[in-house]
Amino acid sequence: MSRDAVERQRAFTGLLAHPVLDRRRHPELFALVRNVRHRPVLIEWFSARLGYRLVVTESAARLFRLPLAGEVLAPRRLAAPSRRVLVLAVLAAAAAEDAEDITTTQDLSDRVRALAAHDEVGLAPYDPDRFAERQLFDKAVGLLIETGALRGTGRDAGEQREGWTHRRDTVGGAYEVERELLVRMVDPAALAATLGDNDEAAAVEDSAARFGLMRRLIELPVCLLADLDDACRAYLSSQRHRVLAWCAEMTGWVVEQRAEGLALIAAEESDTDLPFPRLRAVDFATLMVLNELRKYRQEGGVVSEGDLGRAVTEVRARHPRAMTKELDTGLALRDRAVELLQALDLLRGGAAGGTWWLSPAAERFRDPRVVSVTARLDETETE
């Protein structure tokens, strides 16, 4: 494989992981994306194969995941920000646009308080005198830093925001407003596609089958045939060879094909946003719960809330020394396991009648071999 091909793959997968790039925070990756040999190819890949829009400027790059049928396809986030945090982040972004080039947590908080008080905004008032609200605003500012709209200056901004939250710091950290990235937080084409009121939305819909299939392969842990609509299944049936070639060309990864669907397997653990299992107690316990759930799975992959409880009880009894303070109760283990398994799309549901659905992909983790540094912990497992 040529050097250019490898570099394009690094740039493509890097953009998926970091859709907001600037030359200060990601100098090496940004240099690959902006390279005159790679940039037009990357723009074409994202546009023609996924229906995404890549904008590259002198100092930043932004990947916009344009909605398809009003939705953006993405895996369930682990510990995702609450709706209130997202609302406060949007208000803080609007406030930052009118702020000076250097602003502070306190300044943004004052501006957001004024914005939220307007009747036409239609939001619950923001009250920074309440500790809970200050905590949420701290997280909102953190999101703007992650997106590159704000850049901390001076001392550790996170510590200063925490001090502001607890009223130990009246400023809460100083930030440089990155106006180019700030104004690119919302793309006109993406907004129009979301509202479905212009040619941009129509152009995406015209290629819905191709985009829908490719997005599931690229963005989700697994692309199950049962999740595809008729158009996507027909496209896969007629264009399977082309789809697999595109995936290999863009990522360098391998597509694993099974009767239930396809999965794009990353070459390295660092290539995925949620590697599993990691060397930590929560992942170990979740892996054990998943293996126990497989034993209770009924036809169609259904398991009950009772089955989940029995799996948790069995794991806690079999591996008591693995139960850290974070997992000190059955409810704690149950909640953490469900959260992680849902983020991995290995477990779905939990609403009607307390039933859950176990993905066929759970079989990839069957019968784990449990060992310690000095001795095997579970003498009954199947290797």
Rank of each mutant, 00 (worst) to 15 (best):
W253N: 02
A245H: 12
E256W: 06
V204D: 02
M250V: 02
R240C: 10
D229R: 07
R240E: 15
A193Y: 03
L217P: 09
V204C: 01
G252E: 05
E205R: 10
A201F: 07
E205H: 08
Y235N: 09
A245F: 07
E219W: 06
M250Q: 13
A231Q: 13
D230K: 11
G252S: 08
G252Y: 09
C232K: 00
Q239E: 15
C247L: 15
G212S: 03
D197H: 13
F211T: 03
G261Q: 01
L217S: 04
A259E: 11
L244D: 14
P221D: 10
L224R: 11
A208S: 13
V243F: 01
L217G: 03
Y235F: 15
L195H: 05
C247Y: 07
E200M: 05
A201W: 09
A203N: 09
R233H: 13
H241A: 15
L236P: 05
S238T: 15
C223V: 03
A201M: 06
N198Y: 04
D197M: 09
L262F: 05
D206N: 10
E200K: 07
L244G: 09
A226T: 10
M214C: 13
G261T: 03
D229M: 10
A263C: 07
G196C: 06
D206G: 05
V243R: 03
S238N: 14
E249A: 11
A192Q: 09
A248H: 12
A209Q: 08
V243H: 03
L220N: 02
H241Q: 14
M250P: 09
L224G: 07
G196W: 01
E256M: 05
R258L: 08
A203Y: 02
V254S: 11
E205A: 13
A263Y: 08
G252V: 05
A263Q: 05
A248K: 11
M250S: 07
V254Y: 12
A231W: 04
R258D: 13
L220C: 08
D229Q: 02
R233I: 06
E260S: 11
R215F: 06
L225K: 04
F211I: 03
L220E: 14
S237R: 15
E200G: 00
L225M: 11
L228I: 06
A248N: 09
R216E: 11
E249I: 00
L224I: 06
D199C: 02
P221W: 05
L244K: 07
R216P: 05
C247T: 08
L217H: 08
Q239V: 02
W253T: 00
A263T: 04
G196L: 00
A208H: 14
A192S: 12
E249D: 15
R240F: 12
A226P: 02
D197R: 04
A209T: 12
S238G: 12
V255Y: 03
G252P: 11
L213E: 08
E256N: 08
L224H: 06
A248Y: 09
D197I: 12
S237Y: 11
T251V: 05
M214Q: 13
R216L: 08
C232S: 13
A248S: 13
V243Q: 10
E260I: 01
L262V: 01
I218G: 00
W253D: 14
L244Y: 03
E249R: 08
L224A: 02
E260Y: 08
W246T: 00
S238R: 15
D199K: 11
G252N: 06
L244N: 10
A234Q: 14
A248Q: 13
Q239H: 15
A192L: 04
D229C: 01
C223H: 04
R216T: 08
C247N: 13
C223P: 09
V255I: 06
